[in-house]
Computed example of a mutant assay.
Amino acid sequence: MVAQVAVSLDGRTAGFDADLARYYAMATLWQEDVTLVGADTILAQESMLRAAQRSAESGARGAGPLLAVVDGRGRIREWDALRALGHWSDVLALYADQTPARPPDATTRELVAGYEQVDLEEVLDRLGERGARVVRVESGGELIAVLLELGLVDELALLVHPVIVGAGQPWCGTTGVRLEHAGTEVFAGGVVWSRYCVS
């Protein structure tokens, strides 16, 4: 599993203009089977999703990876809009036993793992049983922090932007994770791409 995140120099994931073109260009390096995201990442883009759905063909499917969304509290409503974007082969909702009931006409595929919250270790095991070998996590930080604490991340890739935001929470509150430097590349404008193996 590789965790990829765009951050400011002071470790924030919001409050600056991220180089998204470079971020997604670098994401292609892993050719992941599954893109794992948290509900907050999707909820932050709901208005964009609604606008995109109006201009996209409903139900369009891409040849890309499976999008798996951790939504233990059942907050996401724009599943059809996500699917219609066509970036992913399909969309999978990751729920826990105690996730609020979904509408009876819901068409999104579900994987239920864990009781009160989504059991991420079980999710990865079950995705592996379905043939997934490479999982890339795309998150604002909270999901990555949990995965690091559980020891589930193999590689951490940071796209560091030369800006100090000065407000908001740092992307990761996890401590004591030992990293081994795997490479650094500096791009025009001072954006730094750093990769680390998790010891």
Rank of each mutant, 00 (worst) to 15 (best):
D17T: 12
Y115P: 08
M48N: 14
D33N: 08
P65Y: 08
G72Y: 02
M48T: 14
D33R: 03
D17Q: 10
Q98N: 03
T41C: 00
M26P: 06
A132R: 03
A25W: 12
R178L: 12
E110C: 10
A21V: 15
L143E: 06
L159A: 09
L147R: 10
V163K: 08
R109Y: 02
V7W: 00
P104K: 09
R61A: 11
L43D: 04
G74Q: 05
E129S: 10
R73A: 05
H87T: 07
R130V: 01
L43H: 00
L152F: 07
V146E: 14
W88I: 03
Q53E: 15
G190C: 06
I76T: 03
G59K: 05
A106D: 15
G59H: 04
T184H: 05
D19S: 02
G131P: 00
V165H: 08
A52C: 12
S199F: 07
A188C: 09
D19R: 03
G183Y: 08
G15P: 02
V137H: 02
L85Y: 02
G11F: 05
Q117A: 13
A188Q: 12
G183T: 10
A21W: 11
G86Q: 03
T28R: 15
W30V: 02
A157W: 15
E138L: 03
S139I: 05
G72A: 01
I144W: 00
T99E: 01
W171S: 11
S47P: 12
V198F: 04
A44Y: 09
A63P: 08
G15V: 04
Y24N: 06
C172H: 06
L66I: 12
V186S: 11
E122I: 07
I164G: 10
G151E: 02
G38R: 03
G176L: 09
R61Q: 14
L124W: 00
T13D: 02
G128W: 03
G189K: 02
D154I: 11
E142K: 06
R83S: 02
Q117N: 10
G168A: 03
L158R: 00
V5I: 12
P103V: 07
A63Q: 14
A93L: 10
S199Q: 14
V177F: 13
T107R: 15
Q117C: 07
G64S: 01
G168C: 07
Q117I: 07
Q4H: 12
A39M: 08
G11H: 04
R130Q: 14
Q98E: 12
S8R: 03
R102W: 13
Y95G: 10
P65T: 10
E57L: 14
A52Q: 14
A145T: 12
P100E: 04
D97A: 13
A106T: 13
L67N: 08
D19M: 01
Y24D: 09
Q31G: 12
L159K: 09
Q45R: 15
E185M: 06
V198H: 01
G141Q: 01
I144N: 01
V163D: 15
V153L: 10
W88N: 05
L49D: 12
V34A: 00
